[in-house]
Each structure stands twice: as C-alpha cells, then as structure tokens.
Design a protein around this nucleic acid. Structure first.
Length: 276
DNA sequence: CAAGTTACCTGACGGC
DNA sequence: TGCCGTCAGGTAACTT
C-alpha cells in the first residue's frame, strides 16, 4: 500500500488521535519485521510518556515523545495502523499494540513484514538527517527538489528515468505507482535514459510529480476521519490511475493502448503516443 | 562506481 | 478442489 501519499494520509489521520496521548503499555508479536522489533527500548522510551508530534519524512512516520525521543515507523509494502478498542481481538499479523491512556489501542498490522520500527533516544534525534536519512534525498515538496538538481545528478548516467525517480537518494517517497503516473503526466517515456533528458523535461517532471502526489494525498484525505476502529484499507485510494495497471486499455488522453514493460524489475506502464 | 539482480515475507490470483 | 507459478505499492545487500 504505502508510497509517500499513503504515509502522509496515515500521518494526518493518526496525528489528532495520538498527540497529547500517553502510552500505558506495549505488546509485540515477537516476529521479526525487516528488522527485529526493539520491544524493550520501545517500552523504555514510550511507556508513561506523552506523544507530542506525529510527522513524516520520506516514507517514515515519526512519533515524537515529550522527552525528545522518537519512534520511527516504516510501513514497508503491507504495513498499516489503526485504532481499536481492546475488546476487538487482535488480527493475524498484528505485530505491535500500543495501549493508550484513552482506553484505545494503536495497532501495527503488516502481512509481509517488510516494515520496520526504530527507536531513537533524545540525543540521537537532532542528528537524524546525518544518520537515518543520510541516504535519503530531498522531499518532493521541498524547495531543494529542483530541475537543476535533477539535471546535475542525471549527468552522464544511463539509468532509466523511472528507476531514477524511484531511487530514494534522488527523491524521497516516489514508489512504483506514482513514478508511472508522474511520467505520464509529464509526457516522458519511463525507459528514457536520464542523461538524455533536457533541462526543460526535468522542469516539467517536477510539477508533474508534485501534482500527482498532492492529488493522491487529497483522495486519501477524504476518508481520513474513520481511522478510529476502522483500520485497514478502508478505501483510501479511489484514485483513477491513468497508466498504472492499465496495460492494453485505452489511454484517457489519446485512446492508444497503454503498454507495459519491466524496468529495473518493476512493472512499468506508458502511453506510446503521449509519452516521448 | 553505476546498474541490475536477489532476498526478505505472505497472500491472492490464474492456469491446469 | 488443489497444486503451482507468478506477482504485489519497499529497500538494502549483493553481483556484474
């Protein structure tokens, strides 16, 4: 499920329910995610502490504690968070349950266990950008994400533009779906080598990425409110994809059949007519 | 060093 | 019905 827009939607959905709450206990499944769940450290930094912020950087959710400590949550491919009353039996693949002082539980559910949960002490938080995010590029909505930056970074390189913009070091948070959709919006073929893109094309791609992401966040936002007790994919993404998953179907702009091929091991879709 | 491949997991789906 | 291969929105560790 989660690329940047989904993580942003989860972030905004959690915030009003979490900020100001204190954690009273933490239960874990004992199963390993991408990394071991640091259950003891989680308890040490969170139990009897108040949550003061819920933010996002790249695809990480950042839960800030009153002590200055922080818990990072990455949803991987199938991670999700939801609030439940304790009487609701935990589901298969619920891996962390945060008991809250309002009687509800926040549950982390992750079928494929590609997600991650990390704990940072107060002394580690000021250096996040140099440690956790050392290899993470600019936020797509950040002012450092510019055509000049991309043009310079792409110089002489042979990688396909779609793989390039999906690389975390280049820009944070653009996954397979929105890479496909952004390139369609910008009219650029996903298999173009980045060294062949003009300064103008980069300048076109940036707003395309931003508009696609912003629209996806807004679509998710329409159902944000039912986080309580709802959990799981309650129809967040009624986004109409223009190319993703539409191979063989007619392009919404010109009617040509959308094509599909693999780039960098990932399914890639493109209109042979609208994208050059 | 850049670019491509593989591994980590489970579940859903299509073909036979 | 069931068995098998393939695929899935992420990422890092590999190999080439």
């Amino acid at each position: 499920m989660p690329e940047l827009p989904e993580v942003e939607v989860v972030c905004r959905g959690l915030r009003p329910h979490l900020v100001g709450r204190a954690v009273t206990g933490i239960l874990t499944s004992g199963k390993k995610l991408r990394e071991e769940i640091p259950a003891e450290r989680l308890r040490r930094e969170m139990v009897d502490r108040r949550i003061v912020s819920v933010t996002r950087r790249a695809k990480f959710l950042q839960v800030g504690l009153e002590t200055g400590a922080m818990v990072l949550i990455h949803l991987g491919m199938t991670g999700n968070l939801g609030f439940f009353p304790p009487v609701v039996p935990p589901a298969r693949h619920d891996h962390v349950r945060w008991l809250l002082d309002n009687g509800l539980e926040l549950r982390y559910h992750d079928t494929r266990r590609f997600g991650a949960i990390r704990v940072l002490g107060p002394e580690e938080v000021p250096r996040l950008e140099e440690t956790v995010y050392r290899t993470t590029g600019p936020e797509p909505f950040g002012e450092d994400f510019t055509a000049d930056y991309l043009h310079r970074l792409a110089k002489g390189r042979e990688v396909a533009v779609k793989a390039f913009i999906m690389t975390n070091q280049v820009v944070a948070g653009v996954g397979n779906i929105y890479a496909n959709e952004s390139l369609f919006r910008a009219g650029i073929r996903p298999d173009r080598k980045v060294k062949s893109l003009s300064r103008n094309e980069w300048a076109r791609l940036i707003p395309a990425i931003r508009e696609i992401l912003r629209h996806a966040i807004e679509c998710g936002g329409s159902t944000i409110s039912d986080f309580l007790d709802a959990g799981r994919e309650k129809g967040y993404f009624q986004i109409n994809f223009k190319v993703y998953g539409r191979d063989g179907q007619a392009c919404t702009a010109c009617g040509a059949a959308i094509g599909k091929k693999t780039i960098g091991g990932r399914a890639s879709y493109c209109c042979p007519n609208c994208q050059t």
